[in-house]
Design a protein around this nucleic acid. Structure first.
Length: 277
DNA sequence: CTTACATCCTGATTGC
DNA sequence: TGCAATCAGGATGTAA
């Protein structure tokens, strides 16, 4: 579910309430997530203080006082919520609350994830960048490294569709199914176009537009298409600004041609047949 | 190395 | 209304 803008929005809303808080206890319900939550997770994080929150691609990173960190990923259906009050025992463990961190002010940070495609793990001091999940990631879309020349290099050698390239986390970190469609709409490029056949100008446009669209989505506190909520349980507002995603049959905002839906790389893709020739 | 595809799961929506 | 099929914002392991 969450792509870079949603994770960044979470990072921002969680920062104030969590920084400086010490983890006093941990409850792991169902440990079988995308990877099993290690039995040692509890002992490794209890007693440590959350010093800062960072993000890499779709991963949220809680930097701890010993230099270690907790790495979290929300998969398709995960949410991280900050809860101040447990009204009763039911509220303590709603369905699919898998990891529950109790903090020294009595509040809790809870990972809830019905489909269990998410991830939460402890990484020792100095090893965050070395962690398998993080090491495999391509550049951040806002970094200098991600520019037209870089994307051209990646696109040139590949046969796959441009939308698949944008969603490949090894190419650029953080773009998922919604924003890939939105970026390509704004760039005027069809999702199924083969990378190798794109003109230089098209690749340049895509490279420039990618951080723009993501930045605007962050400004809107992310997209709530179905289930995404921020740490307070509130939906993001960028969904209203989506031009193509989830809008099959609706008129294009630019030319009124009905938006089409098509499967590319086994994922739903949306585009305007007129604006994206 | 790249690419295609199945797979991990539950829940909401769609269609008959 | 009920029930089954389909689909879902992600990533990975396997095979070719």
């Amino acid at each position: 579910m969450p792509e870079l803008p949603e994770v960044e929005s979470l990072r921002r809303t969680l920062e104030a309430p969590l920084v400086g808080r010490r983890i006093v206890s941990v409850r792991v319900g169902e440990p079988r997530l995308r990877r099993r939550v290690e039995a040692s997770f509890k002992d490794l994080v209890v007693g440590r203080t959350i010093e800062s929150l960072s993000r890499r691609g779709k991963y949220l990173i809680f930097n701890l006082s010993d230099g270690g960190a907790i790495i979290a990923h929300l998969g398709m259906s995960g949410t991280l919520t900050h809860r101040h009050v447990d009204f009763d025992n039911r509220a303590l463990a709603p369905r699919h609350d898998h990891v529950n961190l109790e903090l020294d002010d009595g509040s809790r940070l809870v990972l809830n994830d019905p489909r269990r495609f998410g991830l939460m793990k402890f990484v020792a001091a100095g090893e965050v960048e070395q962690a398998d999940e993080i090491r495999a990631l391509g550049p951040e879309p806002f970094s200098r490294e991600f520019d037209a020349g870089y994307l051209m290099l990646k696109a040139r050698s590949r046969k796959t569709a441009i939308k698949n390239l944008l969603m490949d986390q090894k190419v650029v970190a953080g773009v998922g199914n919604i924003y890939a469609s939105e970026i390509l709409f704004r760039a005027g490029v069809r999702p199924a176009r083969r990378c190798g056949r794109l003109k230089r100008a098209e690749v340049e446009l895509i490279a420039a537009i990618t951080p723009e669209v993501l930045a605007e989505a962050i400004d809107g506190r992310g997209t709530t298409f179905r289930s995404y909520r921020d740490s307070h349980g509130r939906p993001g507002s960028f969904g209203e600004q989506l031009k193509v995603y989830g809008r099959e049959g609706q008129p294009c905002a630019v030319c009124s041609t009905p938006i089409r839906k098509r499967t590319v790389g086994q994922r739903s893709s949306f585009y305007c047949p007129r604006c994206q020739q």
